[in-house]
């Protein structure tokens, strides 16, 4: 028995790691002899490793216990599918790559922009150079137009979107909490959500004239149904066990709404408001394009009349910056108000 075991069982079959991978307990002769895969691997080895031959006892149990840490003879073959660090699904790439790729992405945009704006004057009338755009932005600022337009647009957003979010919270929590409210309201809202709010613009102009109110109404109508239905989902996500625990602690309906449903929904509500804010800006632009005497989008229309593409580009950048700033701000607010929900 001494010879065959040392021959057929080089270190890799007796190492706890390799035998463990078969889900068996190493250490019986039968295991060794009956394990075909281990024998197969052995065939490719030119020679059993020295130390194994030196073992005085051929009993595999002893081999397992006293075997020194010897490298398995390399076969040159590999096992498993190598995963490229940069393209692993859901893989982490580390902060350096994150930052570097982010910067590269932005740089790529600028490169494309510069290339497209290069060439003769005719081209410049279609796509302005970055420098011209920045100059236009500076001019808009220094003559005060930008400030006035920002104030006008932001006021509309502030009023219209505040109404929309307020209605969204109240009605959304109602729908998400009470099946009765849900049954009564959800069909209408499900329908109204698919009526493009922009299609209501002519109607609103007819009803409310061309002052501030049609613009504010358009922002409200264009976002409120999204806010309601998404807040309803947030309220539905309050775990039933939390509600049951509250009931068994003696809380009534009002207490649970105020002290359980609302606090649990706060981070979700802020996220909903953050996501739908983009829709509010789209509504504002539609309103200002059609009938306005001030505002960022109105300024774009005016620039179009003078073929001032640099001004138009500058204003588009302003929109983008406002978006990023409000997004970051609302994320920050969410984490400050609800640190418990921070990922």
């Amino acid at each position: 028995m001494t010879r065959p075991v040392t021959d057929a069982a080089p270190p890799n079959t007796t190492r706890p790691g390799s035998s463990g991978s078969f889900g068996e307990v190493a250490g019986s002769d039968a295991d060794m002899a009956l394990d075909p895969s281990s024998i197969d691997t052995n065939r490719t080895d030119p020679e059993p490793a020295g130390p194994a031959l030196d073992q005085p006892a051929a009993d595999p149990a002893v081999l397992v216990g006293s075997e020194p840490a010897v490298a398995v003879p390399a076969t040159g073959a590999t096992r498993g599918r190598y995963q490229r660090p940069l393209f692993r699904i859901r893989g982490d790439i580390g902060p350096a790559w994150r930052l570097g790729l982010g910067v590269a992405g932005v740089a790529a945009i600028f490169v494309v922009w510069i290339l497209m704006s290069m060439g003769d004057g005719a081209n410049n009338a279609i796509i302005p150079t970055p420098a011209a755009t920045i100059r236009a932005l500076g001019d808009l600022w220094s003559d005060g137009t930008l400030q006035a337009d920002l104030a006008a647009s932001m006021q509309r957003i502030a009023i219209g979107y505040a109404i929309s979010v307020a209605v969204g919270i109240v009605v959304g929590i109602g729908i998400g909490t009470f099946a009765s409210v849900e049954s009564f309201l959800e069909p209408q809202f499900g329908f109204l959500r698919y009526v493009p709010a922009t299609a209501l613009t002519p109607l609103f102009l007819l009803w409310f004239g061309i002052g501030e109110s049609p613009k504010i109404w358009l922002i409200v109508v264009g976002t409120v149904f999204f806010n309601i239905l998404m807040v309803a989902d947030v309220a539905r996500a309050v775990p039933r066990e939390l509600l049951n625990a509250s009931y068994t602690l003696g809380a009534g309906r009002g207490t649970i709404l105020r002290r359980v449903v609302l606090p649990h929904s706060v981070p979700g509500i802020i996220d909903v408001a953050r996501i739908n804010l983009a829709a509010a800006w789209s509504m504002l632009v539609v309103a200002e394009l059609l009938a306005a005497k001030s505002g960022l989008a109105f300024e774009i229309v005016r620039a179009q009349r003078f073929r001032a593409v640099d001004v138009m580009f500058a204003l588009l950048i302003v929109f983008g910056v406002i978006g990023i700033v409000s997004d970051v701000f609302l994320r920050w607010i969410r984490n400050v108000i609800s640190p418990w929900a921070r990922p």
Binding site: P239, E241, L242, N244, A245, T248, G250, W340
Partner: peptide
């Protein structure tokens, strides 16, 4: 006839108020 503070309940899952 309904839930009340006289019968305290503990559930399997995480029923603590996370905030």
């Amino acid at each position: 006839v309904g839930p009340g503070a006289d019968r305290g309940m503990v559930f399997q899952g995480y029923s603590l108020f996370p905030w």
